[in-house]
Design a binder for these strands. Sequence first.
DNA 1: GCCAACGTTGGC
DNA 2: GCCAACGTTGGC
Length: 147
Amino acid sequence: MKSEPDVYGIEDLQRDGQTFWGGVRNYQARNFMTNDMAVGSQVLFYHSNAEPPGVAGLMKVVSEAQADPTALDANSEYFEPKATPENPIWKCVTVKFVEKFPRLVSLEEIRKNPKLKDMALLQKGSRLSIQPVTDSEFGEILKMARG
DNA sequence: GCCAACGTTGGC
DNA sequence: GCCAACGTTGGC
């Protein structure tokens, strides 16, 4: 999952303990949350639009996808006029802080690692704020973070 | 249903 | 700040 550290970074999550991943407004990204994440799922926290960009830490899903309250809030920048409590359209998971990596695994390093060449993150034009990671990719990132 | 125009993302 | 890539919108 990507977030801009200037807006909300791994240290903000460390301070908060857990957070509701609200405001996602892309159907593919939403579907990853509703279909592919469950309580206990491990998630990499990626710092986008950062210097340098890269994977900053680890978190874990503590609540499956639920209605995104920002979609129903007329004062929110994420307000969705078509959303109703019965059909909120947008949903999001709650994640908790697990760890901040001892060092950032930068996008550049990820690019250089042949084992990670197929990561969704590296595919051309890949901009989704939530992307799938395979078990082996996940393990490799952890190894790099701790290596 | 097509597609041009527009907005957003995010690395550089 | 630039711009490639992509998603969304809305007129037709």
